[in-house]
């Protein structure tokens, strides 16, 4: 099939960027979206043009490297799918496809479609861990954890840190990402000791980095490739209220 790509090109952080249109013939339906991008790059290199820079690694939806805002949606039109898992069967012959980088003040652009997501790392460093030194761990089965808590913690822990929640939120808020980690650790007994400082430190860091506020639109949940729920954000709010008020934790 033949498609028309409109891709954001920008040489580096300082240069001015803009959209460039690339008509692309001979795209096969069996390609994944990123294989289509590879194909585009091959044609560009052969023509002597600079290939489009975009991030990717595992190509099976687990590393969280790939991004891309495709036709107005983070990770493109498929539900609970990362860009690398997106297939060209979702598009038709003659389609115009607009490909943009994640847009957020906290994700400055590096080149073309690559943005710097290290602010996620900074939030994690503010408290996304349990302070246990190697060797200090008790026997694993000494702390039984109710299965539903363990399962819920797992559901929060599957976040791949791709940043789609930030990209898709009209406010560019990172609440879904932050709350997923806070939830995971809040649901486990191991995470209780530091729960109060963790939620406050991570939220403060998130605010400092220039992410927007959450207005509960739920767009993050709708676009999260791993299906992480905004119930996590509610849990984080709860954790935050309790931490601020110095109250015992409410469980809901």
């Amino acid at each position: 099939m033949n498609i028309k790509l409109e891709i954001w090109r920008q040489k580096d952080a300082k240069s001015k960027g803009g959209f460039v249109t690339y008509p692309l013939d001979g795209v096969s339906e069996g390609m994944s979206f990123l294989e289509m991008m590879d194909f585009l790059n091959t044609t560009l290199i052969k023509k002597g043009d600079e290939p489009v820079a975009f991030e990717h690694d595992c190509r099976e939806g687990i590393c969280g490297s790939c991004s891309l805002y495709i036709n107005g949606r983070a990770h493109g039109p498929a539900h609970e799918t990362t860009t690398c898992e997106l297939r060209m069967t979702k598009f038709r012959n003659g389609d115009r496809i607009v490909v943009e980088p994640w847009r957020s003040k906290a994700f400055p652009l590096i080149k073309d479609l690559i943005v710097d997501r290290s602010s996620f790392e900074k939030i994690m460093q503010a408290g996304g861990f349990i302070s246990v030194n190697t060797g200090a761990a008790p026997e694993a089965n000494s702390i039984p954890i109710p299965k539903n808590h363990a399962d819920e913690a797992f559901d929060s822990a599957v976040c791949v840190g791709c940043g789609a929640c930030v990209a898709t939120c009209k406010n560019s808020s990172a609440m879904l990402f932050v709350s997923a980690k806070i939830s995971q650790l809040a649901l486990l007994p191991q995470g209780q000791v530091e729960a109060k400082t963790r939620v406050q430190n991570m939220v403060t860091k998130m605010d400092d980095l220039g992410f927007g506020n959450c207005t509960n639109t739920g767009a993050c949940e709708a676009e999260c490739p791993k299906g992480i729920k905004i119930a996590n954000i509610a849990r984080m709010n709860r954790e935050f209220i309790c931490a601020k008020m110095g109250a015992q934790k409410m469980s809901l």
Binding site: F129, V132, A137, A140, K147, A150, A153, Q184, L188, Q190
Partner: peptide, 22 residues
């Protein structure tokens, strides 16, 4: 064995039985 202890302590949500044990 120590590795499992360590990972569990670090918050790795391994699958559990209904009893709450791994």
């Amino acid at each position: 064995n120590q590795t499992i202890d360590q990972l569990v302590a670090a918050g790795t949500p391994f699958a559990r039985e209904y009893s709450g044990y791994l």
